[in-house]
């Protein structure tokens, strides 16, 4: 299956802003995160098709997955 993967803020450094990804059926968000060399602790927001998603969310063909780093300063 194909998904669109969008990266935001510092996740773009040395990677990309947006890319099409070919993934095996049943892949979840966590596997994509780890595949990018990121850790779960670095993840702020998971957005799946414009809405809040989970690391456990299973991806489907045609999904748009967006990943944002954790932001917590003031």
């Amino acid at each position: 299956m194909k998904i669109t993967l969008k990266l935001f803020a510092t996740f773009r450094n040395g990677r990309f802003k947006v890319a099409e990804q070919e993934l095996p059926e049943g892949t979840d968000v966590r596997q994509v995160v780890l595949g990018l060399g990121l850790t779960e602790e670095e993840i702020g927001i998971v957005m799946l098709n414009g809405r809040h998603g989970e690391l456990d969310s299973t991806l489907s063909h045609g999904d748009t997955l967006s990943l944002f780093p954790l932001v917590g300063g003031g």
Partner: peptide, 18 residues
């Protein structure tokens, strides 16, 4: 929900500052 995945510590401000 925004900090649903947070476990401990700070975010990117730790590396980037403000």
């Amino acid at each position: 929900q925004i900090y649903r995945h947070w476990v401990a510590g700070k975010g990117i401000e730790q590396q980037l500052g403000n």
